[in-house]
Design a protein around this nucleic acid. Structure first.
Lengths: 125, 125
DNA sequence: GCTGTATATGAATATATGTTCATATATTTA
DNA sequence: TAAATATATGAACATATATTCATATACAGC
């Protein structure tokens, strides 16, 4: 890595210090689009809460109703319902109604994949 | 899925409603250990902030120094430094010193994998 | 219709979190 | 040693967030 003197460059109207201008502009070219990044962060944030993560990993073994999830996690029905809504809004889980009950499950194989990948990594790094 | 009447079961000293007791106890058996889950949620939470995620995806193309990252993200040096510390504490990134500068890069192929997987999913679901 | 059960929702509150600002540390060069 | 540069840190503040509580909705059975 060649070390260069800091110089000032104008980007989007404001002057900023740049040391490795090439590296920075490469990063800019390859950057995810802002809406993509925004959605991505919403998804990670949703998975980044212990309660919601417990729900998600719990659902890896198959669907559960709200009441089951409450029993499994030790949360109140209401807290579970709030959590489920958030996960559902992001399409991380989906619901199937049977009578008065709603059975929740992971929406997508990808979600399970992401969880499994994280678990695998934790377990043998 | 067989639907049964709700019954009351004692778990860890407190009485809870359980509808599908088998499903709940299966989930309990297969549940990640609590410290695992805690660490997992810390990692997802760290990735769940737009600024930190911007940094991480920026580093997918190679190492950058703090100053580069500040230019790339539009954040102040200080904010970048705080973000980097958090990512570093979780071993998501690592630092290499060269003179007065520190070059940060993704710590692990797994981190890149997780990011790439999330991006791929967003892009063609 | 009414009652009971499963789930959802809104407001409130307590806690967590990201950025800024001021200051500190580390390293190079004079 | 002193000055300049790159990065780090702590406190403070403003915002976001998870849970609780009270209430609402949806469905089943009578």
């Amino acid at each position: 890595m060649t070390t260069r003197k800091t110089n000032l460059v104008v980007h989007e109207g404001c002057q900023v210090k740049v040391i490795h201008e090439d590296r920075v502009s490469q990063a800019r070219r390859e950057a995810p689009q802002e809406p993509e990044l925004e959605r991505m962060s919403l998804i990670f944030k949703a998975m980044g809460d212990p309660s919601r993560l417990r729900i998600l990993t719990g659902l890896m073994g198959g669907e559960m109703c709200v009441c089951d999830i409450a029993a499994y996690t030790g949360m109140s029905d209401s807290a579970v319902s709030h959590a489920l809504r958030r996960l559902r809004d992001l399409s991380l889980i989906k619901a199937r109604r049977d009578g008065q009950m709603l059975y929740y499950s992971l929406d997508d194989l990808h979600v399970a994949g992401q969880l499994q990948m994280a678990l695998d990594h934790l377990r043998h790094t």
